[in-house]
């Protein structure tokens, strides 16, 4: 039995992957995934996200480094390590002519579990696939196929679930429903690692975020801390009258106008003790600039991500 009480679900030390053609997909990478968390790996296309997942799952040989899954080395103790992991790959790679029931049962068998009709029934019902159980996969819609992939990955009751771009190409409704399912899995104690292009997905679900670009893991941070640390806030004033004149004082304070002069926007750093908000309010009073509303807006993870990737 694998001890899932350990705080670290996956430990990656010095992982490197260089493909035979010389392409370095991963620079030496160190990463610990905590048991029970949702970890989002963000990165543009070709950043190395899928290579990292494939290395942990044993799908590609690594060039250097060590990976442990609940303390089990993926090379020397691969049976224990792999039996903990379920993988939903990015591509919808299914056996088109198999039925949903058979393909999910096949996956369970592959991972060394005896047949359990009750568990597969529960899994299919939870993923709204029960009424499709006897249908060939080729007859299903893209969204349904994606659910089948998830059902296959869950069929052997893994403690860790990799979701590689889980909502790529699915509609908004289905995406939200998948997010709910991911939250449900987490509440059952499953550690979830997801890669995504959709920053809102990471923002909605993740406890921690890793940003990878050109094979380098640039940062790993608690999502809230990251947004606090790197996040800026905008203070937006909706004015009664459009501002036609330029005020040097406002320009000096880096307050700029928008919406044809009907808005003033002040961007400030949330971590600074003197963030200048009080000064801006004083200044507007002095200049007799009246506003009917004011609001604040936090910088999104997407903006943080873009700024990090661009810096590189």
């Amino acid at each position: 039995m694998v001890n899932t009480e350990t705080k670290t679900a996956i430990s990656i030390k010095g992982l490197e992957k260089v493909y035979p053609d010389g392409f370095r997909a991963l620079h030496p990478t160190h990463l610990d995934i905590r048991s029970g968390e949702i970890f989002a790996l963000l990165g543009p296309n070709g950043a190395g996200k899928t290579t990292l997942i494939n290395a942990v799952c044993g799908i590609v040989n690594v060039t250097a480094g060590d990976i442990e899954v609940y303390g089990n080395n993926i090379t020397t103790q691969y049976r224990k390590a792999r039996s903990c992991i379920g993988l939903v790959p990015q591509e919808l790679t299914t056996d088109a002519f198999e039925t949903v029931w058979n393909t999910v049962s096949f996956s369970r068998g592959l991972f060394g579990k005896p047949a359990n009709a009750g568990f597969i029934e529960t899994t299919l019902k939870r993923l709204s696939l029960w009424d499709k159980k006897d249908q060939q996969i080729r007859m299903l819609s893209g969204g349904m196929k994606r659910r089948v992939m998830i059902a296959k990955a869950l069929s052997h009751e893994p403690q860790i679930l990799f979701l590689d771009e889980p909502t790529a190409g699915v509609d908004v409704e289905l995406r939200k429903s998948m997010w709910d399912q991911v939250h449900e899995l987490r509440s059952m104690g499953v550690t979830i690692i997801l890669t995504t292009h959709y920053i809102e997905e990471a923002e909605e679900m993740a406890d921690r975020v890793g940003v990878i670009n050109k094979g380098e893991l640039m940062l790993v941070e608690d999502k809230k801390t990251l947004m606090k640390k790197l996040g800026k806030k905008e203070l937006v004033f909706d004015l009664h009258q459009p501002l036609t004149d330029e005020h040097e004082e406002l320009t000096a304070m880096k307050v700029h106008s928008a919406a044809d002069g009907l808005q003033l926007i002040y961007t400030y750093d949330t971590l600074k003790e003197n963030n200048g908000v009080a000064d801006v309010l004083d200044c507007l009073n002095r200049l007799h600039i009246r506003y009917r509303d004011l609001s604040t807006r936090q910088t999104s993870l997407e903006e943080i991500f873009v700024s990090l990737v661009n810096k590189k």
Binding site: I59, Y78, R82, L87, E91, T93, S107, F111
Partner: peptide
Amino acid sequence: GTIYEVLSAP
């Protein structure tokens, strides 16, 4: 592409 499942199985 379904080979991933066999390769990642214990």
